[in-house]
């Protein structure tokens, strides 16, 4: 177990290193940050001063080495644009994205699993069919378009919800959160739903597929023959089996929810880190791009680890040793 964890962590470190190399080279391919940052009226001396200041006069490998040295000291560099530590910038934005993503995932579980169970148990009923048709709609529309539709209907036409922004926040553990205030929740409703829409459909469909697949299986028949109540059969026995793919997917999706927040955050002007990364790519703010991607990668690795661990809990047939 410990050896397995250690191995995964070493691999994770390699992944992170590989990623930073790719990003360093990639950002260099796109363009020169100085072209974008610098005032076009600046003269040559000013230009050279800024290039030297940002360390961009060094060869790329030396810049990378410098970055690695900083990394060992826990320093991911300062934003070219904001002149603040990149990690602090991301840290300031992270809670907003996190609470949005967590809410979206919760929404997709709370809405997706019951609907999926129902559609799986009664696949031929009108309701079951409607749920499936609705689920197709759920992931058919581009999220930026859905976002605008939501704003049009609920903010502009009906005036029920605020159109954009984060609203009032309250502090908890030294961080500002929206979900602690009514105003914050109202601001969060549309972006969270927008972000959850695709995942609701995904969870719903996986649940339904799982139920449909498991119901004809022998263990279900045995359980029924043993005289267990239908509810117990579905919620304990079937559930346990269908949870494996669902947990996998929800786990994996959590990361992409955070990434897809990029689009939702731009539509709803939600001040999270997704908006920060888009802006940073646009101005080639390399320290922020690298730091953001590192944070995301580490997050993903953590999620994958947890998913793998949950595997073993949910399905004893799969043991961690099988990975070696």
């Amino acid at each position: 177990m410990i050896a397995w964890l250690l191995r995964r962590l070493v691999q994770a470190a390699f992944v992170v290193l590989a990623m930073t190399v790719i990003v360093f080279i990639g950002v260099n391919v796109i363009g020169n940050p100085v072209d974008i940052l610098i005032s076009p009226e600046a003269d040559q001396a000013e230009r050279l001063r800024i290039i030297a200041n940002l360390g961009l006069d060094q060869p790329l490998w030396r810049q990378y080495l410098h970055f690695l040295v900083g990394l060992l000291h826990g320093d991911l560099g300062r934003s070219f644009v904001f002149n603040e530590p990149a990690l602090r910038l991301i840290g300031q934005r992270m809670p907003a994205t996190m609470e949005l993503a967590v809410t979206a995932v919760l929404l997709s579980i709370v809405i997706g699993i019951p609907l999926g169970l129902y559609a799986g148990l009664y696949p031929d009923g009108a309701a079951g069919r409607s749920i499936m048709a609705g689920s197709i709609l759920g992931f058919s529309l581009p999220s930026f378009w859905v976002g605008l539709m939501l704003i049009m209907v609920f903010a502009v036409q009906l005036g029920w919800l605020p159109s954009t922004g984060r609203g009032a926040t309250r502090e908890l553990f030294g961080v500002q959160w929206s979900f602690l205030t009514i105003d914050g929740l109202r601001h969060m409703a549309m972006p969270a739903l927008n972000l959850a829409l695709g995942n609701i459909a995904l969870v719903l469909r996986l649940t339904r597929a799982g139920v449909r697949e498991n119901l004809p299986m022998d263990y279900v028949k045995f359980a029924r023959a043993k005289g267990l109540s239908p509810a117990r059969v579905v919620f304990v026995h079937v559930m346990k089996n269908i949870l494996i793919p669902i947990v996998t997917v929800i786990g994996l999706e959590f990361g992409s929810v955070i990434a897809f927040a990029v689009v939702t955050e731009s539509v709803f002007a939600w001040p999270g880190m997704g908006k920060l990364i888009i802006d940073s790519i646009n101005v080639l703010d390399r320290p922020v791009i690298v730091a953001y991607l590192m944070v995301i990668v580490l997050l993903f690795i953590a999620i994958n680890l947890i998913v793998d661990l949950l595997y073993t809990v949910l399905d004893p047939r799969v043991r961690l040793e099988s990975q070696e």
Binding site: M152, V156, S163
Partner: peptide
């Protein structure tokens, strides 16, 4: 509010 549509919608709402 860098998003154009969001800015207009914000004004309208």
């Amino acid at each position: 509010v860098p998003n154009d549509a969001a800015r207009t919608a914000g004004l309208l709402s």
